[in-house]
Design a protein around this nucleic acid. Structure first.
Length: 443
DNA sequence: TACATACAC
DNA sequence: TATGGTGTATGTA
């Protein structure tokens, strides 16, 4: 519930005052109560983990350590310094675009979003603790002079496209992660660049936007680097093992992409704070976590990440959801349900896709989220068919609740397992938790 | 397959 | 006026 200061621009601020304001604005709300419920869940998970840990004896842990060391040797084997990976991150992107188009916003605290939620804020605003993913009304309390500009996605998409155009010159296989982030493999470019003249060596991006580069031997490290030296910074990890190990030694695990709030708490509970702690506690971690997660932790501890920048171009699901003022009358719930089916079908048709598994998502006014799914025999993009499936799922939920009304603040639809228009199927590789088969048991 | 959770942006 | 929307992966049953 406190301020998330994991991101940049939050160096010297009065965290105590900020947290107090956030707390005062939040306490007693349904949202806050749900957050507390979630915190309790994490505590329970930690307690369960603790109990499990106590059931291990020292010999078991030692054995696991040996097994982990064998896995680590295999990871070491794959360490690759042959690629130069760049992670580029447009700084406070939406805010930067708005400031470019309206310079009067430049030197005042400003954020992009609405009174319910902010997407991002400029550095002036960050000094007050105003940041992305904070509701606008709390931000206003923290900074009464804050100017909130409504989100203008079409504009950001256009600017993003312009920037991508430039990045493509450096890596034709460049991989955008969002409107303001991308990974590049510039190995090839660097080789060709040796013959460039001074003019050709100039790097250009669109006017007005600042950007951060992280340059490293792999994607995981490049991503962490781009968060250093903000704003407009650039950070490079030298391409040798010692430099990488020095870099990860004191790196907090929370900085690593993929280790979020919950994992960080769970790891913290057993004394794992930095990446080298992941190595220190490898015996324990191997016993506690799945093969996929553990392997990922080991790779992080060694500073080994993916070196293959490639787009996964087959989408796996498509969804639409809305938050609204409470709805509880069945007729209105069904009407909302139909509306969402229509919206989803419209999006499906844009990409000429069909859905097979239809999922109904609901969030009660207490912020409890539930999903219900049903798979059809054949993929469809037909509104009526989609709706009849979704309607049945919703009806079941209403009945489950009765005689109390089902009181919702959000409803959503998604479809997965789609059939692509021309039957293309593409298996994809290297998720962030790639499991390597040869990490079975050591001999 | 169904569902919940975690995570990123 | 009042805590978002979209997509992916994973664990578990």
């Amino acid at each position: 519930m406190a301020l998330n200061d994991n991101k940049a621009g939050m160096g010297n601020l009065d965290k105590e005052r900020i947290n107090k304001v956030i707390y005062e604005m939040s306490k007693g709300s349904k949202y806050y109560e749900n957050e507390q419920r979630k915190e309790e869940q994490v505590k329970a998970k930690i307690a369960a983990q603790h109990k499990q840990i106590q059931s291990f004896d020292a010999r078991e842990i030692e054995k696991s350590e040996l097994q982990a060391d064998a896995m680590l040797a295999a990871i070491e084997e794959m360490r690759d310094f042959s690629r130069t990976i760049v992670h580029i991150d447009m700084d406070a992107f939406y805010a930067a675009v708005e400031m470019r188009d309206n310079p009067s916003l430049k030197n005042i605290p400003m954020a992009v979003g609405g009174s319910a939620m902010l997407s991002t804020s400029n550095y002036e605003a960050r000094r007050f603790g105003v940041r992305a993913a904070m509701p606008g009304f709390i931000a206003k309390k923290l900074c009464p002079d804050l100017v909130i500009v409504p989100t203008n996605f079409d504009k950001y998409r256009q600017v993003s496209k312009d920037v991508k155009e430039i990045l493509l010159q450096y890596d034709p296989n460049m991989c955008p992660m969002s409107l303001d982030e991308a990974y590049l493999d510039i190995t090839q470019h660097l080789a060709e660049r040796k013959n460039f003249d001074a003019e050709q060596k100039t790097f250009r991006t669109a006017d007005g936007e600042q950007r951060m580069f992280g340059i490293a031997p792999n994607m995981m490290l490049a991503k962490v680097c781009s968060d250093f030296n903000k704003p407009n910074g650039q950070y490079l990890i030298p391409f040798n093992r010692q430099a990488v190990m020095d870099f990860v030694k004191d790196l907090p695990v929370r900085k690593v992409c993929g280790i979020g709030r919950v994992s960080c708490s769970m790891l913290g509970a057993m004394g794992v704070v930095t990446c080298s702690d992941l190595f220190r506690k490898r015996g324990l971690l191997l016993k506690l976590y799945s093969a996929i997660s553990f392997n990922y932790f080991l790779r992080v501890s060694a500073g080994v990440g993916s070196t293959s920048v490639q787009r996964g171009d087959d989408r796996k699901s498509m969804s639409t959801e809305r938050t609204f003022a409470e709805i509880n009358r069945p007729a209105e719930l069904f009407a909302k349900c139909y509306e969402l089916c229509e919206a989803l079908v419209e999006d499906l048709k844009k990409e000429n896709l069909k859905g097979k598994t239809i999922t109904l998502k609901i969030k009660t006014i207490k912020y409890i989220v539930r999903t219900k799914a049903h798979s059809l025999l054949n993929a469809t993009q037909d509104v009526q068919l989609l709706y009849s499936t979704a309607r049945d799922l919703l009806r079941t939920e209403i009945r489950l609740c009765s005689p109390e009304p089902l009181r919702l603040r959000l409803m959503g639809k998604s479809r997965g397992e789609q059939k692509l228009p021309f039957g293309a199927v593409k298996p994809k590789t290297d998720g962030r938790h790639t499991l390597l088969n040869y990490f079975k048991s050591p001999k």
